[in-house]
Design a protein around this nucleic acid. Structure first.
Lengths: 243, 243
DNA sequence: CAGATGTGTTTAAGGTATATACAGTTCGAG
DNA sequence: CTCGAACTGTATATACCTTAAACACATCTG
């Protein structure tokens, strides 16, 4: 994966947007990029993104790994197709209320749910130089639509979108990191370490004693959204601001 | 990287905390885990995390790849050591002012600067199941120390820390994604696409026309911090809240 | 001065992506 | 109707990657 391979952006986009013109001659293709991506998604859902190899995906169809290269330029593009496939079902937020806060909150909730349903999504979209397919643009469009009536400027809307999308990623990442068994083991070892080094980490020691890292009944997504959107509201309520 | 290999947490921690007892017999070791990590950091800084292979790191010392396994259990642990090595220099925030807002803001700025100086850090810490070394705990301790005088409960301090740390990651990630040349190309292709599909993405089309994605003179980190901390301040100012 | 212990090397196994050359199938033009 | 072009899928090969295992050699301890 270290190779850059100078990807052809144009070809990648054509693939994502389904704009490849299909040939007339030759044997009928037995696969499609979409079916390949769907199979890869099944594997990733079950075993993680690292488990998705050209070999494994090809085996799902009973063909050789190289056969996939007739449909997909390479693995990077396959992952992009996986993302796009999973982002189908762009949310309709009109049912969430008339308030922009309610709507962007609903957007965040659905985005978080999607990421939790497909844990590999986080890693897949963390890769650099991502191209955006129609569904991905649809999600972006939905978020901006939620923010549009807020009275924020276009640039501000974009900034707030980044904030909210980032929040979702952060919190889902935290969720995924959390693992009952591992967490217990981690807690024990950390406690043991901190006992020995309490003087090096005085605040942390105090914070743990005060329950800062104990299970928290508050949903961190709701907490984060409330803080961010309160802050945005404050910006909107500023005296000098044009209505 | 798909293999889990059931890592020994205890051994990993001992390595990170430098608590391995060194042997008396046998030849003197020619390396240390720290020197190995330092060499790996140089490679990662220059060529990215993917370019860090056991072979390349070993070559830096003129030894075989397998020699490294005498010092480091495996690649995952090496990456952890890299992170720890780069987190040395835990910030002293007392110079940033007496205000908790100023202090956590300074923490965020330094964290962002560090991530920008070592772009691979984001990917390295995105890996699941990370162990924390003393420096990493130091950064955590510093952030909590900044938040402690705020009047937030321990649990709230933790939640706010997650928010701020997540913000830094989000924005640095955005920075790294942004690439002058690639961005230009992306913009052209996206414009072209949107022209053809303007009806599918009405809000996005409007937003782009309104300059939502134009270069923004506002530092997104400062913007995000201001919103989040404003929101936290509002929480603190709530009427029913105990002082 | 053995023998235990550690270091570093070589070899090899089992992964990964993907370039290339080839065999076989199917359509369309002459 | 036929033949070549175009297309699909395969086999092979390259160049990586991590890391297990067996070995040779150096060094300190009893």
């Amino acid at each position: 994966m270290a190779k850059e391979k100078a990807r052809d952006l144009r070809a990648g986009i054509a693939l994502l947007w389904g704009e490849r013109d299909q040939p007339t001659r030759g044997p009928k293709p037995s696969l499609t990029p979409q079916r390949i991506a769907a199979a890869a998604v099944v594997i990733a859902d079950a075993e993680g993104l690292d488990a998705v190899s050209m070999n494994k995906v090809a085996a799902e169809f009973g063909v050789s790994a190289m056969a996939l290269y007739r449909y997909v330029p390479g693995k990077a593009e396959l992952v992009e197709l996986m993302v796009e496939s999973v982002l189908a079902g762009v949310p309709d937020l009109s049912a969430a209320g008339d308030d922009w806060r309610q709507r962007i909150t609903e957007w965040a909730r659905r985005s978080a749910a999607l990421h939790r349903a497909h844990p590999w999504l986080l890693a897949a979209t963390a890769m650099r130089r991502q191209l955006m397919g129609p569904h991905q643009l649809g999600w972006l469009d939905a978020a901006l639509a939620a923010l549009e009536p807020s009275g924020l400027s276009a640039a501000e809307q974009h900034r707030v979108f980044v904030l909210v999308a980032g929040l979702v990623r952060t919190l889902v990442q935290q969720d995924l990191d959390f693992d009952e068994e591992h967490s217990r083991e981690w807690g024990r070892l950390t406690d043991e370490l901190l006992e020995r080094h309490a003087d090096r980490f005085p605040t942390l020691t105090r914070a743990i004693a005060a329950g800062a890292f104990a299970p928290d009944p508050v949903d961190p997504l709701e907490f984060g959204l409330a803080r961010i959107l309160d802050g945005v509201q404050l910006l909107l309520d500023q005296p000098g601001r044009p209505v």
